[in-house]
Design a protein around this nucleic acid. Structure first.
Lengths: 104, 104
DNA sequence: CAGGAATATAACCGCAAGTGCATGTACTCG
DNA sequence: CGAGTACATGCACTTGCGGTTATATTCCTG
């Protein structure tokens, strides 16, 4: 099972779901409509997210409130860390920083 | 084609390759041995990375030096950004920050 | 020019993932 | 208790991915 956060985020629908849950908990119905998929399809993605620990469910009668649990994203963030300094040409920012230090 | 950075990083072998290239450019042979895959298998992953813009090739006779091009990772970083404050209980850091501000 | 080294591409295979459809389950309400 | 709502699960199907083996390509070297 691709319970790995990286694999889970590979699917755009799943990223979309997480983005929606960032705002507030949602019902399956809402998510289904939002991502334009069948209800079972949505449920399947939610299952994957659940097994990856990225969401939790709070049942309320027949309804299920899905909420975000962002902790597993830390793994991705950690992997990304050693790369982060590389892309944004920090030359300007660095220069500005050094200039500032000179000013002081 | 899953030229999307997210899809590309879904495979551990590809992440491993990037990690190796973070240190220095490498030949296909090195990478092949490092990730314990067949040479064609490695070449395939390199192709995916190439098409995603995550690596570039510098030919030298029959050899190909692969080097890292981390820019596309910025997209992932950007997606991750609105989540980043959430997991690390920044309560302490935030408190310290506010304390500092109070001091000034 | 022949042979070998380094890599890419092609052809093929197995399997898991994503999707739709149909059905099951759990709960509410009249 | 029966019907409807909200969601999960099962099944069938298709596609694409990751892997290997075999082959083509390119270049160096003797």
């Amino acid at each position: 099972m691709s319970s790995e956060p990286f694999g889970v985020l590979a699917d755009p629908a799943r990223r979309r779901i997480l983005d929606l849950l960032r705002e507030r908990p949602r019902l399956v119905g809402e998510l289904t409509e939002a991502i334009g998929l069948s209800q079972p399809g949505t449920s399947k993605h939610l299952r994957v997210l659940r097994e990856a620990g990225l969401v939790t469910v709070r049942p309320e009668a027949q309804r299920r409130w899905y909420e975000l649990r962002p902790e597993p994203l830390a793994e991705i963030d950690a992997w990304l860390t050693p790369y982060r300094w590389m892309w944004a040409d920090r030359f300007d920012a660095l220069e500005r920083h050094l200039d500032t230090m000179d000013d002081e």
